[in-house]
Amino acid sequence: MQALEFDSKKKVLNITKKNIPEITDSHQVLVKVAYSGICGTDIHIIAGEFPCKDDSPVTMGHEFSGTVVKTGSDVTHVKVGDKVAVDPNNGCNVCYFCHSGSPHFCKIGGINNAVGIWRHGGWADYALVPDILVHLLPPTVSLKQGALSEPMSCVAHGWDRIAPVTVGQKILITGAGIIGNLWVIVLHLQGHRRVVVSEPNAQRRKIIEHLETGYECVAPEVLQERTKKDPNYLFDVIIDCSGSPAAIQSGFGLLNYGGKFCLFGVAPPHATVSISPFQLYAKEVTLYPVLVNPLTFPKSLGLLEALGDRYIDYEKLGIKTFKLSQYKEALDELAKGKIGKAVFEF
């Protein structure tokens, strides 16, 4: 089979030929990959800004869907031929955090042992994964849509953190990459209409128009101009999907009294922002950082089912598919902001 591997020591990606993995444990599932996404975290890994397996090359890809082709003898919840999506994260199940319902804080598991980052993942024709990570797709959710299960499960965790958000509140989303777009459709599905999206890239601003939500998408400088004209031009909820320290810092100035600020985008590890503690006190604002997807994969599948073809449309969301051999082209188009997301199609 073909696999796209990353060597963290040399910081290079290479397509290699490998044997199809063999089941060696009764709780393993062999998945024939159908679609596998490129995540912002993957780009940070390739740039050497995010840790990954470093003792040997790793097949990347932690967002993928596919078909079950073989199962271990103790696998009971899926069978050969089932259409599935794979959750890349699981805890050790014995530490304090796992027993407290927060497996994403697990020092052994969670992001520290994720499929496609520390274990071989879905940028390959086949992926061998533990059965605990395999989720059956709802009948109305296609494999193409199912490839968005992992990022949508992170959005579901973010929603759990900031809820309740009352219909009628003013909401600002900063960043119109794929995560910002997923937030847009989830908010629209739930009846929110007073939503503004801020995005510096003109091509990505057009993507928001294609989603047909009626949400306004403007350049960041437009928000600054409005604030100068009207000091009360403020938002009750701000969801940063950019990870940009500048966007985060300027966003705090747009937050209303009693507002909520969701830090969803992943900022560079050593980046800092300057925030006035007095403003935090005076406005009684609340910060909601969001880390991956603890126990939210079933919610993700429910969201995909509810959103359906009206919202989960690759063309409308700015998603482009590539062959695995086109990985350089995919990364280049992402870097230039020509597309919202790249997905490998097998």
Rank of each mutant, 00 (worst) to 15 (best):
T213G: 14
L223E: 09
K32Q: 15
T140H: 13
P277L: 07
Q326P: 06
K299D: 13
E216I: 00
A127K: 10
L30V: 03
G243D: 11
I108P: 01
T16W: 00
V165I: 15
Q190R: 15
N14Q: 14
E315T: 12
Y126N: 13
Y233C: 09
F322N: 09
A114F: 00
G214I: 04
A114P: 05
T174L: 04
D332Q: 13
F344G: 05
S276W: 02
D55R: 11
Q249M: 09
E284L: 00
P231M: 08
V292Q: 12
G72K: 03
D240P: 05
Q145E: 13
V141E: 03
V80M: 13
P245G: 12
L303P: 04
V94Q: 13
G48R: 08
C106V: 08
V129G: 11
A306V: 01
D7M: 05
W118T: 02
S65K: 05
L254V: 01
R204I: 00
H44W: 00
L280E: 04
L331R: 06
V197T: 10
F64T: 04
V237R: 05
G214M: 06
V184H: 04
H99I: 00
K229P: 01
C154N: 13
Q145M: 11
P130K: 10
R119F: 10
I111V: 15
E150G: 11
I208M: 13
A219K: 10
H157M: 06
C52S: 15
S153V: 04
Y96Q: 14
K228S: 13
Q224A: 15
N89P: 07
T59K: 11
G265C: 02
N93S: 13
Q145C: 00
E63A: 06
E284V: 00
S276G: 08
H192T: 02
P277E: 07
G180W: 02
N256V: 00
H62Y: 02
P88G: 09
Q2D: 12
L291F: 12
Q249E: 15
K228Q: 15
P277F: 05
D82W: 03
G337S: 06
I23W: 05
K338S: 13
K170M: 02
N181H: 04
C154R: 04
G158K: 11
A47G: 04
Q279S: 14
P294L: 07
P164K: 10
A3M: 01
A127E: 07
L189D: 08
E284R: 12
R204L: 09
L30W: 03
T296F: 01
L303W: 06
G81T: 02
G91W: 01
G251F: 08
